[in-house]
Structure formats: structure tokens, C-alpha cells
Design a protein around this nucleic acid. Structure first.
Lengths: 213, 213
DNA sequence: TAAATAAATGCATAGACTGCATAAAACAGC
DNA sequence: GCTGTTTTATGCAGTCTATGCATTTATTTA
């Protein structure tokens, strides 16, 4: 059933731990906060903490790796005619934004990540864990849109490169986002980033566009 | 002085630990090998192990973050007229290749990383730690080549994006490299990757090239 | 050969994390 | 409301990575 006592208590506990963790980390810095401190502040056992979040970073960057919702995936695979990299990037950022409905927690996280480069790196790493699933999503889009290459491998390489580029760009975007104003538009940030990518990759003053061999 | 007993012994110890670690990790898998096992196999104390490598991953992916030599940096900042991203990527991979002169260790590392996605991620993370230094190198190239933008910030953003893209692409390249034949050419792999990037970023069937706004 | 420097080690300790057993709470059916 | 079942929370013991500090051992330099 939905909204049972059990479920609500679970959500409450999770939030309580998260709030305690964020608050402590903002005050003392992430690395100076121990799991025990978080447990004491949120009045749960250490074991419970790990049951919920799996690791110390987990409580900040999310206990489970981020996966876009079916709606986002659908929109992505069907968004024909636009730029693949831009669309993928948009899907990922959208699903990241959806994950945190509470504005205060959202902002706290932003500040924390800004102050803790290590967390930004870990977040990137976590994204990398889901690589295969992301590749699958992109392959679906290729299929839906009837995009073919000489062979399946080539198509998969392309998908893998898109994911790789995205994890890289995400690091850039997150940094910019972390240093931006609280209310700043993610959309603008994204389109600026994509412009920048295109400027960089298209800029090749003297080299011909053909293969380098 | 150079080649003193001290220095040679140090190099010998380091190599002994590295060999033991790689051998054990290939046999049992990285996560099933403990630091104590490595210490016993290489006959050093645990403390010595950490003095050399700082962490368990360190013994596999290198005790210190990878930084290109002055020669590489020089070549990069002066290589005018070519593609920025390609040149930067080349510099990074070159310096990575230079790090391991021993072919057997090199190959062992390749196999290990192929079998241990976690290590690939950690390696990427380590690269991210040096971001600021890389940005500085790129800024130097801008300066050497007299490249200007509206303001310094814009230039730095561009540099940061190049680093971000590179860390992403590196993940792709490393995966390809890990799964390739022992003798495969890194140069070919690189140029293929760069072609792929250009195909992806230039491919925008219906969207005009201008700003999305 | 003696002083200075560097390397290796031992020991104590913190802190993250896991496995396992058990207690407490919530649920489902009656 | 009572009872058996399923989740959730906890306690505890133990493993493993990692660090600080003091001490010993080896190499270098003067």
C-alpha cells in the first residue's frame, strides 16, 4: 500500500539523517564530520545509517545512482532532429534536478558540493557506474530514430562516447552551477555549455577535417 | 646525487611492492586483495606501503597524480594551429604512457584496469584533482598563441571545458585501450576518438548552428 | 669515524563499512 | 483485538584502510 505508517516513517528517518548530515557538513566540512556524529545528531544507530545510505558520501550525493525516469527517457529517445549530446545532457540534468524536491536541502547540497571538490568527483564517479544503462538508452534512441552505422559496434562506440563526453561536461556544468546564484537558470547554463563545446570542437584553424591517419 | 645506493634501494622497494600488488590483484581481483597481503608478499611493513603509495589504489594507478613533463607542456603550448582538444588529449595520454617504462607491468596494469571498472573510475577521479593545474597549462597556451576573448573569465571557462571534455574522453579512450590488443597503437585510438567526437558534436540534423536561446 | 639525513618499522588509534543475530514495530488476516 | 509475518532498527564483533608519532636502521656527507 501507499502512504502507510511504515513508509512515512521511513521517509522521515531518511530525511532526518540527510538534514543532520548536510547541516553538520556545512558547519564543519564534509571530511571533518564522522558517521557517528551524523548518527548522534539524527538519533539513529550507525547500522541504520549504512542501511539507508550505504556510505558516507551516499548521504550527500544520494544513496542510489541517479537514473532518469521513464518519462525523461521517453522524451529523450523520441526527441528526434535535435542534438544528441545536448539532448542527453538535458535528460541527465533534468533527472538530477527532479531528485530533490526540497529547495532548502537542494541549496544546502549545492553549497556543500561547491565547498567540497571531492564530492563533485564522487558524484561523477557514481554516474560512471551506470554507464551501461545510459548506453542502452542511447542505443534505444538510435533504434527509434532509425540511425544506422556500418555495424552495431560502431553505434555502441558512438553511444559510449556520448556518455563519456557527458560525464565530462557534467563536471563542468556542476561546477558552474555550484558557483552560480541560487536562482540561476539551469537551462541557460546548459545551452551556454553546449555552445562552448561546439566552439571548442569546431575550432581547428589549420588542420583539415579529414582523418589524421 | 644520482644513482646512489639509497635511490636504487628505494626504486627496488617500490617496484617490488608494485609487482606483488599487480600479481596478487590479477590473481584474486583487486578488491579481494588486502594491503596486508601485498605487504607480506613484498616483505615490507604496512606503514612502508602507505609511505610509498598513499592508498591501496595508489599502487595500481600511481602514487602521485599524473602531471605531464615540462617537455610535453612546452610542446603543447607551442603546437600552434592544431586542434586544442586533440592536442591536450595527446599531451595527457603521452605523459600517461611515459609513466610506465616496463612493458610487463604496463600490460599487467592494462589487464587489471580492464577487469576492474572501479580502478578506471578512480583514475579519472585522480585526473580531476589536478584540474587547476591543467587549466593553467591551457591558459598558458592561450597566452603563447595570443588567443583572446572578451574577458579573462571567458577564456578560463573555455580552458575548464577542455579539461572537462578531456577527462570524459579519457574514460572512453582508456576503456577502448583496456579492451584492445596488447600492441595496438594508442595514436590510432586517439585519432579515432577525436573523429568520433567531431562527428557527434557536429551532427545536428535540424537545429540551426546558432544559439538556442 | 661522527653527525646529518633518509628510509623502514612498530604501535596505537580513528574511522568507514559488513555480517549476523536479535529486538521492536507495523502490517495482514482473521 | 489477537496472531503470525514482514520490515525496520539496533547491538556487537570484526575487517580493512589510513594516519600520527616515536624509534630503529641504513646511507650519505663532512
Amino acid at each position: 500500500m501507499n502512504g502507510g505508517l511504515r513508509e512515512r516513517k521511513r521517509a522521515a528517518t531518511q530525511e532526518k539523517i540527510e538534514r543532520a548530515a548536510l547541516s553538520l557538513a556545512l558547519e564543519h566540512g564534509f571530511e571533518n564530520v564522522t558517521v557517528d556524529m551524523i548518527c548522534e545528531a539524527s538519533m539513529v544507530s550507525q547500522r541504520t545509517f549504512f542501511n539507508y545510505f550505504g556510505s558516507k558520501e551516499g548521504v550527500i550525493i544520494g544513496g542510489t545512482p541517479p537514473m532518469p525516469s521513464d518519462e525523461h527517457v521517453d522524451a529523450f529517445t523520441r526527441a528526434t532532429g535535435s542534438n544528441l549530446l545536448a539532448d542527453f545532457l538535458t535528460m541527465i540534468t533534468s533527472s538530477l534536478l527532479d531528485r530533490e524536491p526540497d529547495a532548502a536541502l537542494f541549496e544546502a547540497r549545492r553549497m556543500l558540493i561547491m565547498r567540497t571538490p571531492e564530492l563533485l568527483i564522487k558524484e561523477t564517479a557514481r554516474m560512471g557506474e551506470s554507464e551501461d544503462q545510459f548506453v542502452a538508452i542511447i542505443m534505444t534512441r538510435f533504434e527509434v530514430q532509425g540511425i544506422k552505422r556500418a555495424n552495431q559496434t560502431e553505434l555502441e562506440d558512438e553511444a559510449r562516447m556520448v556518455v563519456a563526453l557527458t560525464t565530462g561536461v557534467l563536471q563542468y556544468v556542476r561546477r558552474r552551477w555550484a558557483n552560480s546564484q541560487p536562482g540561476a537558470s539551469t537551462r541557460d547554463l546548459l545551452s551556454n555549455s553546449i555552445e562552448l563545446i561546439q566552439r571548442i570542437t569546431n575550432d581547428q584553424p589549420q588542420q583539415s577535417k579529414g582523418t589524421a591517419h
